[in-house]
Amino acid sequence: MTTTLETSQSSLNRKKKGRFKSLFFRLLKSKTGFVGLIIVLAMTIMAILAPYLAMYDPAKTNIMSRLLPPFWLEGGTMEHPLGTDNLGRDVLSRIIYGSRISLLVGISAVILAGIIGMFFGLIAGYYGKLWDFIIMRTVDSFLAIPNILFMLIILAVLGPSVPTLILVLGGTSWVVYARMVRSETLSVKERDYVRSARAIGAKNFRIIAKYVLPNVISSFIVIATLNVASTIILEASLSFLGLGIQSPDVSWGLMLSDGREYLATSWWVATFPGIAITVTVLGVIFLGDWLRDVLDPKIKD
């Protein structure tokens, strides 16, 4: 039964309307995917255009207007639409600027982790034997260490800064990619097309670059997108614990941490950056989910 269904399915794919055009059509059909894309685009634009969008310098304190509520509450003004924090800094401007570091850290850490994980995953999966043993046992030991504790120690030693934060986040989460890429590589390695590459006398490097890598990359992209979300949250947690982003830099996580003491009296200081994190993470997850749906069937092809 499957053969018939598959042939009719794959023959449909044969009727091709440019790869990207059809990708775009599929995106429009998936509502969540579309919403995800809009959110991610909006956040990216916000981060890039922050100096033009924000009304205030995010670090500028103003004791006179401490803890002003959002505009719709009594005492709030349109000058600070989302209110101000305990030092009188404009919450909206800080959220806009905060997106820069949150996204920068989230995306860079994922790229770093992805490259490391991809490299070791490919080596472990393709060459196997001793390489596999060494790499996978290293991965296991990384997984055995409590993540946050490990990061906190390193940050405490090296001192918190944006580059160290990226290094630490990337340096601990590569194991996820290594495991995934390794298992995908193991299955791709057994396909006949890889065997056919060996049969024509292709060298290992060529096989990895032209046969294995392109066929594991779709699942990799999907996992990576989803991980952007969890990295943003991790960065927030570290900043919340005081070892992430330091003032005068601003990130959403740091804002959460700052607002914690005022939750009872001035809820808006912590709530709005919290919402920003939630919305962004949701957007990224939607996008990742949709990517999985779109890219995965292509692997079968």
Binding site: R191, D192, Y193, R195, S196, A197, K210, Y211, P214, N215, K298, I299, D301
Partner: peptide
């Protein structure tokens, strides 16, 4: 090879 569906690199 046997299976023309798996013996050609899809990429």
């Amino acid at each position: 090879f046997q299976d023309p569906y798996s013996s050609l690199n899809p990429r």
